[in-house]
């Protein structure tokens, strides 16, 4: 009995330590955001929300995160679905590709996208070569480029939660629906998709929060036009030593992000209960 308790404590201790560290970091961030020399405690927040330049970081971050989430979800769901229908060998191959993608160095991955989609990239040179376009199409240095980069990076986060749920749905359910005369589309929307919602929910939350906090991808693929909130915080904290203002932006973004995630999960739970 004692050994069981000790074992549990040993397992819980790292989690408590991690949580304590997280809370400590978060509280120091909050504290920094409300310390305003010679001004009211909310001074940094007033400056942040009082200037369109800074509010635009929030809008842009949420917009890019939303586009990325939708795109990653569609591609991720399709990939996960395919993984449940193919042979073991093909499935392993897809898993290997996704894992390699996950562990590849982000800057290298981003530069490979530039070499592919840039003005002088493979896509534009091919299109110019076959006469489909007269001038290079701008595929990067805009929100499209950032979304492409983020979807590319976030795809493993989208695929695996959905796949883990899809593979547990008994095949007999699909067969029963088919026996009862349901078409594939109807089977998918009325049986498979509702049952896979927990996986979809997990994917959405992970990909959305990952995109919201992305740094290198928007910095390099946005070409200076699509800086997200992380770039704002970095610049203020590191380049201008303005920690309080950087913290205010980070706290505002995190609070809004958490609110969005909370709203989404509440909606999803209701949907799952009624499904």
């Amino acid at each position: 009995m004692r050994s069981l308790t000790t074992g549990r404590a040993a397992l819980i201790a790292p989690a408590v330590a991690l949580l304590a560290l997280l809370l400590l970091a978060l509280s120091s961030l909050i504290a920094a955001s409300v310390v305003v020399p010679g001004g009211p405690w909310y001074g940094h927040y007033r400056k942040f929300f009082g200037d369109d330049l800074y509010v635009a970081y929030i809008y842009r971050s949420f917009r890019v995160a939303a586009y990325t989430t939708v795109c990653a979800l569609v591609i991720g769901y399709a990939t996960a679905y395919v993984m449940t229908r193919v042979s073991m060998l093909t499935r392993r191959l897809i898993v290997i590709v996704l894992i390699l993608q996950f562990f590849s160095v982000s800057v290298t991955r981003i530069y490979s996208i530039i070499l592919l989609l840039g003005n002088n990239g493979v896509v534009n040179r091919t299109l110019l070569g076959i006469g489909a376009i007269d001038a290079p199409v701008r595929l990067i240095y805009n929100e499209l480029g950032v979304v492409i980069g983020l979807v590319n990076a976030a795809l493993p986060f989208a695929v695996f939660p959905i796949y883990s749920v899809l593979e547990r749905i008994p095949i007999s359910l699909r067969e029963a629906a088919h026996t009862l005369g349901a078409q594939r589309t109807r089977t998918f929307w009325q049986i498979l998709f509702p049952l896979s919602l927990p996986g979809v929910g997990a994917s959405v939350v992970i990909v959305f929060l990952y995109s919201l906090g992305a740094f290198a991808t928007p910095l390099l693929l946005g070409g200076g036009f699509v800086d997200l909130i992380s770039v704002f915080s970095y610049e203020q904290a590191i380049n201008f030593s303005n920690y309080g203002f950087a913290a205010a932006g980070a706290i505002a973004s995190s609070a809004l992000g958490l609110a969005a995630v909370y709203g989404f999960t509440a909606l999803l739970e209701r949907q799952v209960r009624t499904a």
Binding site: Y111, I114, G118, N119
Partner: peptide, 8 residues
């Protein structure tokens, strides 16, 4: 990198 890759 931007000039070496021919982006600009």
């Amino acid at each position: 990198k931007v000039i070496q890759s021919g982006e600009v």
